[in-house]
Amino acid sequence: MGEDLTEVISKTVLAGNQVSTLIERKEAVSALLDGQTIILMEGSSSVLSLQTAKYDGRSVDRK
């Protein structure tokens, strides 16, 4: 059997260190409540979690 759809998408479309694959529903709910984006796909038992929280940037120094 081939790779799970979530694995294919995380490696090709959303490649990066900000993506993780979650198996447990409890993990997915916790990630969502922590401000992460989760992606559920029909037919897949796993969930993708993406770090999409917006962080304050460094202010511009004026001289």
Rank of each mutant, 00 (worst) to 15 (best):
S46P: 00
L32E: 14
Y55S: 13
R58T: 14
S59C: 05
G2C: 08
R62N: 13
L50P: 05
D4N: 15
E42W: 01
V29G: 02
L40R: 15
A28V: 02
L22Y: 03
N17C: 14
M1A: 14
G2T: 10
K11S: 15
D56I: 10
T12F: 08
D56V: 07
D4F: 08
I23V: 07
D34H: 00
D4V: 10
V19H: 00
R58Y: 14
T52G: 03
L33S: 05
G57L: 12
Q51H: 10
G16W: 12
T21D: 06
S59L: 11
L22K: 01
G57F: 02
A31E: 00
D56F: 15
L33M: 13
L14C: 11
Q51T: 09
L33K: 13
A28G: 05
E7N: 01
S46W: 03
L33P: 04
S49C: 13
V29H: 00
E27R: 04
I38V: 04
I23G: 06
A28P: 03
E7Q: 05
V19L: 01
E7R: 01
E42R: 02
I23W: 12
D61M: 10
L50R: 08
R62I: 15
N17Y: 13
S49P: 09
M41N: 08
V29I: 04
T12H: 10
G43S: 03
L33N: 08
Q36F: 05
G35W: 15
A28M: 04
V60F: 15
L32F: 02
S46A: 07
S20F: 01
N17Q: 13
A53F: 05
L5P: 13
V47C: 00
G57M: 09
A28K: 01
D61P: 13
K26T: 10
V19S: 03
S20G: 08
A31G: 04
K63P: 05
T6M: 11
L14Q: 06
G35L: 07
I39L: 04
K63H: 06
G35Q: 07
I38E: 00
G16H: 07
Q18K: 15
S59M: 11
S44D: 12
G43H: 07
R25G: 06
D56H: 13
A53N: 10
S20C: 07
N17K: 08
Q51K: 15
R58S: 15
M41W: 11
T52P: 07
V47R: 04
Q18V: 06
K63I: 05
L50W: 00
T12M: 10
G57D: 01
L22M: 08
K54M: 11
G16D: 11
S20W: 01
S30P: 02
G43V: 06
S30K: 06
I39K: 02
G2P: 14
E7T: 06
S49D: 02
M1V: 11
E42N: 00
K11H: 07
R62Q: 14
K11W: 03
L32R: 07
L50T: 00
S44M: 03
G57A: 06
K11P: 05
E27H: 04
E24D: 08
S44R: 00
D56R: 09
I9Q: 09
G16S: 06
R25S: 05
V13W: 15
S46D: 09
S10R: 10
V8W: 12
S30E: 13
Y55F: 10
V60S: 06
V60Y: 13
